[in-house]
C-alpha cells in the first residue's frame, strides 16, 4: 500500500482542470442575486443534498464530484451532513409527495442566506413524473429555486460548472 501511495505522490494529480463557470448558469444567477441577501460567503459553499424522489441517477453523478478526478472540494465547495450547516440545498427528484414535508423542513432548517439548486430534469420540470398522484413536480412549486441544472442526470462537468457559477456570483457580493 505504501508503494501505491508513493506512486500517487510522485505521479502528479489525477484531478482534471475545472471547467469555467457555465454561462447560462451565470446568466440565471446574475438576475436572481440582485435581489438575494448580499452576505459574502468568502469563496466557500456548503451544500446539503436532498433527494426528493430521485431515481438515484442524479446522486451517482453528484457523488462523482467528490472523486479525485473532479475533486469539488478544491474549489471550496463541500457537502455537509446537516441543512443547518448549509448555504445551498441541492435538490433532486420530482418532489415525491411523500418527501415534500421533509424537503420543506430541510429548507426551514437551513440558515439564511440560502440558495436552492434544482438538479436534474426531474427537479427542474418534474420530468416524466409530473403527472400523477405521487409527485408535486418541479422543485420551484415547493421552494424558491435560484439555479436550474438540466440533464438526466446532469454530467459531473455540468454540475461543476453550475456550482462554480454559484460560487462566483455569491462571492462577488
Amino acid at each position: 500500500m505504501f508503494k501505491h501511495i508513493l506512486k500517487s505522490l510522485t505521479g502528479g494529480p489525477v484531478t482534471e482542470a475545472g471547467p469555467s463557470p457555465s454561462d447560462p448558469a451565470l446568466a440565471e444567477l446574475a438576475g436572481k442575486l440582485e435581489k438575494a441577501a448580499k452576505a459574502r460567503l468568502g469563496r466557500s459553499l456548503s451544500i446539503r443534498e436532498v433527494d426528493a424522489g430521485s431515481c438515484n441517477g442524479c446522486e451517482l453523478e453528484i457523488h462523482a464530484l467528490n472523486n479525485p478526478i473532479y475533486d469539488l472540494e478544491r474549489f471550496g465547495i463541500r457537502f455537509v451532513a446537516s441543512p443547518r450547516h448549509a448555504d445551498v440545498l441541492l435538490v433532486t427528484g420530482p418532489v415525491a409527495r411523500n418527501m415534500r414535508e421533509a424537503l420543506v423542513r430541510s429548507w426551514d432548517a437551513t440558515p439564511d442566506p440560502k440558495w436552492v439548486v434544482a438538479c436534474g430534469d426531474c427537479a427542474v420540470s418534474g420530468g416524466l413524473f409530473r403527472d400523477g398522484y405521487a409527485c408535486v413536480g418541479p422543485v420551484n412549486e415547493v421552494l424558491p429555486v435560484d439555479l436550474h441544472i438540466p440533464g438526466c442526470p446532469p454530467r459531473p462537468a455540468d454540475l461543476l460548472a453550475a456550482l462554480l457559477a454559484l460560487l462566483e456570483t455569491s462571492a462577488a457580493r
Binding site: D51, G53, N98, M99, F129, D131, G132, C135
Partner: peptide, 10 residues
C-alpha cells in the same frame, strides 16, 4: 416509500 413516484400508475 418516501421516493414513491407512482411509476406503475404512470
Amino acid at each position: 416509500g418516501y421516493v414513491h413516484r407512482g411509476i406503475e400508475g404512470l
